[in-house]
Amino acid sequence: MITAALVTGASSGIGAEFARQLAARGHNLVLVARSVDRLETLAKELDGVHVEVIGQDLAEPDAAARVERELEARGIQVDLLVNNAGFGTTGRFEEIPAERERDELMVNVVALVGLTHAVVPGMVERGSGGVINVGSTAGFNIAPYFATYGSSKTFVLNFSLALWSELRGRGVKVLAVTPGPVETAFFDVIGTRKAAIGGRMATPRAVVEAALRGLERDRGYVVPGAANFPMAHLMPRRPRKLLARIGRLVTRSVLT
């Protein structure tokens, strides 16, 4: 039986950085993404640890079950799950293809929950383990023109904190890391760098360091970067309909 950390969306950006930092800490790894070639290239960089690659599109309805079957077939026990895979959409809701929104929810929410459900029971039984879910500061607020993306990240935050509370004292730690804009291919996929909404770009390295530190300290959630403090801790205290109106003023720049 091989014990390893599983990282989704590991082919680039934050996921690849998680792989590098975990390998440097001596973790064996399971890397999951659609692009097997990119995963295998990354695996060659990670010296001194065992690395397994699983090619899987997490938008598929049975994605989590397929990954779970692969883990069982390869004799791998997951002691740390990093649900990093995700993407965003932006624009007027009625103009975004329904299929794209569906895939977004499958990756950002359904696969995340499915993989968590696949590994947490074993962690609870063993009395040890950890889960890191990559959210966003968008999850703290109402985000017009990011309606599906922002709502998916609200789910990630609330789901993570609920599990954090449930599992306290049972040896399993859960953390949501909620960065603002990060210098990754996210903005290439979403189609505009205006989606950063004027925020200062963080580096994947800084986000991963904050996440691993937060998990060690059992923080429940962390918001990397002092500039993101108001978004996470001040704005959510205002009336929700007012937040929706303010959010529209802030985010409408993506339409131009």
Rank of each mutant, 00 (worst) to 15 (best):
I2K: 15
D188T: 08
G150H: 12
D79S: 13
E17Q: 14
V254F: 00
A73C: 00
L115H: 12
L234D: 02
N28M: 07
V67S: 08
V223W: 14
A24D: 05
A19H: 08
G48H: 13
N228I: 00
L22N: 10
I246E: 13
R240S: 13
G114H: 14
G150F: 03
A73E: 12
I197E: 07
D57C: 05
N83C: 06
T116F: 04
M1G: 13
G114T: 10
V30N: 15
H50I: 08
P61F: 04
S160W: 06
L29F: 10
E70D: 07
R200L: 05
L212E: 01
P239R: 15
G198I: 02
H27N: 12
R213Y: 04
L39W: 15
A202R: 13
S253C: 00
A195Q: 08
F18C: 08
E40R: 15
D103H: 13
M201Y: 12
G129R: 07
E183S: 12
D218S: 09
L157I: 08
P179F: 04
M201T: 00
F146I: 05
G247D: 09
G122R: 15
T8V: 02
K153D: 06
S12W: 05
N108K: 15
A23S: 13
V110W: 14
V177I: 05
G48N: 11
T90G: 09
N83T: 04
V208T: 03
F229S: 06
A85F: 07
H233W: 12
T251R: 09
E17R: 15
E17A: 02
A33I: 02
L163W: 14
K194T: 02
L157V: 03
E94C: 01
A63D: 03
R217F: 02
A64W: 08
N108P: 13
A227Q: 11
N28E: 06
V223K: 14
A65E: 12
A210V: 01
R238Q: 07
A138L: 12
Y145N: 04
M231W: 10
G139Q: 10
T256Y: 08
E95Y: 08
R252I: 01
T148E: 00
R213L: 05
V134R: 10
P224K: 06
F187A: 01
E183Y: 09
N84I: 00
R238D: 00
G171Y: 07
A147Q: 11
L81E: 07
A63N: 08
R66A: 06
R245S: 11
G198D: 04
G150Q: 09
Q21N: 06
R102T: 04
V119F: 06
D188P: 07
L58K: 09
L29D: 09
S165M: 06
R219M: 07
A24F: 01
S253P: 01
R252K: 15
K44A: 11
L161I: 02
R193Y: 11
G26N: 10
E72L: 06
T137M: 09
V78P: 14
